[in-house]
Each structure stands twice: as structure tokens, then as C-alpha cells.
Nucleic acid binder design. Structure first.
Lengths: 223, 223
DNA sequence: TGCGTTGGGTGACATTGTCACTGAAGAGCA
DNA sequence: TGCTCTTCAGTGACAATGTCACCCAACGCA
């Protein structure tokens, strides 16, 4: 699964400003790995032993329950690092989060020794890693807040707008949306039908059209 | 609020193994702060500008909703560091978690400059900090799992056992338990009444006695 | 003893989750 | 064109949880 990319050290805040010498060394030590859309990047039975930085694509990190329900924790975008794997490596505890390549993905994996050396010697790299951790902690705080205190219709409206990425067409089954929010398909169906009755959206099989974004936004903001 | 403690560098995995020279320097640079039981250690309006290590006592970290509900995220015990403050310092995002001193607390605060230097120069210290982050990430994963997929009676049983710390007497109001789990007092009351009917516990005002721990444990494990 | 505060109980109703179904839309194929 | 299979969505009944508006009981204290 080895492939090549250009000088990826240019893509990361944590490596961009390193001296040329160090970056060349990194280019030599790191490996580039690819995943096809839909492939599992990491999971309970598949804990990588190196540190991962996402060069291109997007990874969806979600957690699943024993009963088969699922909730999306956050997404890792190009230029970010995926610290959850690191966290789990370090703490060696059981966990049931998994990362799925949401698009085709190219990632950089750095052997632990390189990572350690870099974290020790390069302030900007260390800062990058710390702030990656911080961001994920904050992401998770947000998830906890939503799940513990948020209303499902509000959360669904939010998610529809986010998944649309500015467009008005979303390709997603009710089941997929339920998996985003950690709820059941039936619940999503009910709420979407309500949205449709109120003229906020228009549904066809596997696809949702946002008809009234302003009002959806108002609903989403009423969190 | 300045006080003194002995050689606290002995208490932390991240500092215990440092050379004497470094530890002496730390003892000189760090400040010891105390909080009385119930005091807020940090919160949305009170973000410390230094790194905190807990020397004695316990801090309860919780998140609250606009509607006034609350949920406990995790507890910081002596010997651990409280990375959430660090995270928030770094990411400068709004958040609404707060830390309350659950007992009288003594903590070590390390100026950011000392922290940076230490993280750069001392492997064991850096490892300590990384693993502190990791542990909190894992803690939050657990919270998400519980809140998103767990049953309230199971979670309450779990929490009762945990709060008892091996004993059978718990001093806590229904409201306090609700704040542990991020639910409403009425829900806790209902479930506790059910527990009492089933002979699992015995309630008096502000106090709960665990009558049948084995069965509570069975319930808690049925997660 | 009376009174205010706090902790807890309760019923009605709204929201969300679960279960067991049904039916509808599309894909592939004779 | 029809047939069949799979996937996606709709539905009603019920359970669990959250919300609201109250009530009452226990305790602390003047």
C-alpha cells in the first residue's frame, strides 16, 4: 500500500517550519500509506503502531455500541493528525472507536522513534501534537454536550447543514444519519418527515434536498 | 493561597525519575496552590495560564448545559495532571467544563515556559503529559459511550458503586446524582425508588445505603 | 413553636428508543 | 416488460427518559 506523494512536510503546521535538514530526514523515515474510500484505517482490532498524519482525504472517527448503534465523534481532515490512535497506543486500554476512510486517503506514518525524537527536539512539532490532542478533547466535549443535553431535531438540522458543506443536496440514508448522531433510524425518519411537512427539506430515496436553509439554521442554532 | 508541601516531584510519574538537578529547579520554579473543598479550580471564566498537577485531593471535572443540567466527565486524582485546562489554553475555544475541588486540594502549577522546557528536554516528563492526555481522551470516550448508548438504571447502579468506594454508605442527594449522570433529579428519584422496592438500596434524606451490592454489580455489568 | 429552606414524591405529558412489522424504490435479469 | 431480490423508508405500539408543575416532608433555626 506504499505510494508516493510530494514533499508532504509542507502540508503540516507541525513540520512546515522545520529546518530543511530535519524535513529531509523525515521524508526518509516516514512511510506513506493509502486507503480506499470505505476502508477501515484503524479500529479495535487494528491499532497502528505508529503515529499518523493525514495528507489527503478525510477520516470519519466513530464509536459503536454493543447493540449495533453508532455515533460519529469527529472527522480528521487533511493536514491534521489522528491522535486517537496515539492515545490508545499509549494507554493500552480497550476502546471501541474506529476510523473509516470517508474518501480515498493518503496518510503519513511516522515510526514511534522518529516521533519521539521530533517531539523532543522541535518545538513547533511538539506544539502541533499538543494542539491536536487539545482539539480532539474539545471535539469530544462538544459531542458529550450534544448527546447529553441536545435535542435530536436540533442536532439533526445541524448535521444536515454540516454534511451539505454549503450545498443543498445530501446523499445519505436515514440509517447513515442515525449513525452520525448515535440514534436509531426510526427516530431520524420521524424527524425528517416532520422537517418535510414543515417544508424544510425534500426527501427522495437516499437523498435529501435542503429547501429552507435559513430556517434550518435557526433551528440548529436554537441549541 | 501559596502554601508549602514537601518534595512533590516525588509524587508524579513524570517528575519522579528526573535528575536531582532538574527536580530542584522545578521545586524552585513551580508554585503550590490550595483550594478548599467546593471551590472552583477552573471554569469558563477562569482559565489558568499555567499547567496544573494535582498533589493532594481530588478534582471533579464536569460540564454543564445552558438549561442548568450537568454531567461529570471525570475526576482528577492526586498524582495526575489536569490536561483539560491545558487543552483549553492551547485551543482557545469556548467550552463550558469546570473543575471543582471535591476535597481540599493542593496542586502544583508550572509556568508555561518551565513546562515547555521540561517537555522538550525530559522524555519521561513528556511521556507523562502525553499519557495524561490519552487517559482523558479515553475517559471521554467512555462518557460518550455511556450517555449515547447506556441505560440510566445501569449507569446509576455503576455510579452508586463507584461513589461508595467500597463502602455501603453514600452521602448524596438525588440532585447530586443527577448531576453525575447528566440527567434530571426526577429520573434519579424514580430509579432509586425502584431500586429500593427491589431491596437493592435503602434511602434516607441525603443518604443511600447499598443493601445488595452483588445484585447492583450484576446490574451495573449488564451494560 | 413556627417558618423558611432543602430534599424528595408524583402525575401528566413530550421526546426519544425499541420492536415488529409493512410497503416502496431501485438493480439485475429472463 | 415483468419478476425477484435487496435496500430503504414508514408505521403503530410500547418502553425509557426528560420536562413541568406541583405537593409534601425533613431539617435548621429564630
Amino acid at each position: 500500500m506504499k505510494t508516493t506523494v510530494g514533499d508532504w512536510t509542507e502540508s503540516f503546521l507541525g513540520t512546515r517550519n522545520l529546518p530543511r535538514r530535519v524535513r529531509d530526514k523525515l521524508l526518509h523515515e516516514a512511510r506513506v500509506v493509502s486507503y480506499k474510500q470505505g476502508q477501515q484505517v484503524f479500529g479495535p482490532d487494528n491499532i497502528p503502531d505508529s503515529l499518523m498524519f493525514l495528507h489527503a482525504g478525510r477520516i470519519r472517527v466513530s464509536q459503536s455500541s454493543d447493540a449495533g448503534r453508532e455515533i460519529v465523534l469527529y472527522r480528521v481532515e487533511a493536514g491534521e493528525s489522528c491522535v486517537l490512535t496515539t492515545a490508545c497506543m499509549l494507554s493500552e486500554e480497550a476502546y471501541n472507536a474506529e476510523g473509516i476512510a470517508e474518501t480515498d486517503v493518503k496518510a503519513i506514518t511516522l515510526p514511534k522513534t522518529s516521533f519521539d525524537r521530533l517531539a523532543a527536539e522541535e518545538d513547533s512539532f511538539r506544539g502541533f501534537v499538543f494542539s491536536a490532542y487539545s482539539r480532539r478533547l474539545i471535539d469530544l466535549l462538544r459531542v458529550v454536550d450534544d448527546v447529553a443535553f441536545g435535542r435530536m431535531d436540533v442536532r439533526l438540522a445541524e448535521r444536515l447543514l454540516a454534511l451539505g458543506e454549503g450545498h443543498s443536496e445530501i446523499q445519505a440514508t436515514h440509517q447513515a444519519l442515525a449513525n452520525e448522531l448515535g440514534t436509531a433510524r426510526e427516530v431520524v425518519s420521524r424527524i425528517l418527515n416532520d422537517f418535510q411537512k414543515r417544508g424544510l427539506i425534500l426527501q427522495t430515496r437516499g437523498r435529501i434536498t435542503l429547501q429552507n436553509k435559513p430556517q434550518l439554521e435557526r433551528l440548529a442554532d436554537s441549541a
